[in-house]
Simulated assay, not measured.
Amino acid sequence: MRLNPILFALFSLVHLVARSQSFEATMAKQGLVDVQKVDPTILVDLKYSTTDNFVGKDVYGDLTRAYMQPMAAQKLAEASKYLQAHHPTLRLLVYDAARPRTAQWKLWNALPDLPENERQKYVADPRKGSIHNYGCAVDLTVANQDGKPLDMGTKYDFFGELAYPSRENELLKAGKLTQQQIDNRQILRTAMRQGGFSPIEFEWWHFNALSREKAKMVFRIVD
């Protein structure tokens, strides 16, 4: 028996909405908050709710709002406040925030050809949990007043040394990054540090509100 195309489309829509509501309901139940309700000036474009990501697929479905633990969202608001005080035409643009562990598995499994130690540079092992899974990490950039991201030298989720904050000086000397690209990254890092976040070695866009060890002690993983 063939399902009427209209009914099939309606069923698919209901399924996507239910999945989104399930993710959001779980986050809300665990006390996470929508970052734009804490600071409406923060821009959000969840890349895993689009096909513009390294998987090339929509991983989140209709989940398009960025959630974080309240303390992390407040830190992000402080970073946003600092950025706007020093660069009034710029805004934080969030690419990813709290991430369900079901989505973590999809990202992990999308890199089967990388050795496990190499894979963990870019995607945390779902068995251990990412800081994103605890709602204590954020991936983001800086955008201008039109919402256009500044040039950071690579796209979001670029796997390679060009994205490494730890290699910027030598990449500048080698002509692989420009001073403007590094300056743009520094604008982001300075604001995030002022908000209380810590950068990491391999990704210019990733910042942690807490260490994974502390996050595990205080919060539960979002499944």
Rank of each mutant, 00 (worst) to 15 (best):
V33L: 08
A9I: 12
S80P: 10
K121Y: 07
T102G: 14
A143E: 07
S211C: 11
A25W: 05
A9G: 12
P199I: 00
L93V: 03
N133T: 14
N144C: 11
N184H: 10
A79Q: 04
L46H: 03
A97H: 01
I131D: 13
A137H: 02
P115L: 05
F8H: 14
L63H: 14
N144E: 06
Q181T: 05
Q179E: 10
W105Y: 15
A209F: 11
N208V: 04
F23V: 10
A72Q: 02
D62V: 08
L46C: 07
V218Y: 12
A110L: 08
R127K: 14
W204E: 00
D139R: 08
D113L: 12
Q145P: 00
D146E: 11
V142I: 09
F8K: 15
T41W: 01
Q69P: 05
A97T: 03
G135D: 09
Q104K: 10
L7V: 15
A98T: 04
N4A: 11
F159M: 15
A209G: 11
R99S: 07
L46M: 12
V14L: 15
N109V: 11
L32T: 07
K216Y: 01
P100D: 11
R2T: 10
L171R: 05
V59M: 11
Q186G: 00
S211V: 09
Q180V: 08
G129T: 12
A66L: 01
Y48H: 14
W205R: 04
E168M: 08
A28Y: 00
Q186R: 11
K57Q: 13
I131K: 12
V218Q: 07
K121L: 13
P115C: 09
L140V: 01
A209V: 06
F219C: 00
V59A: 07
L162V: 00
D39H: 01
A103L: 13
A137S: 11
L90W: 02
Y60M: 14
T190Q: 10
V55Y: 04
V94M: 08
L32Y: 09
D157C: 03
W105F: 14
K106M: 15
A72H: 03
L32P: 02
V44I: 04
K106L: 15
A110W: 07
L76D: 04
A110S: 15
D52C: 03
A124G: 10
V123H: 11
F219I: 02
F158W: 00
F11P: 00
F159L: 15
E201K: 12
Q104H: 14
T89P: 03
S80Q: 14
Q120E: 14
R99W: 08
Y67C: 06
L111Q: 13
Q179K: 10
S166H: 07
H86L: 02
E213Y: 07
P126M: 13
K57Y: 10
S166Q: 11
D151R: 05
L150G: 03
R220S: 08
K155L: 06
E170W: 11
Y67W: 12
I182V: 15
L111C: 08
A28F: 00
V142A: 00
Q186N: 11
T178K: 06
G56P: 07
S20H: 11
M71K: 14
D139T: 05
R193T: 04
A28H: 03
L3Y: 07
A18D: 10
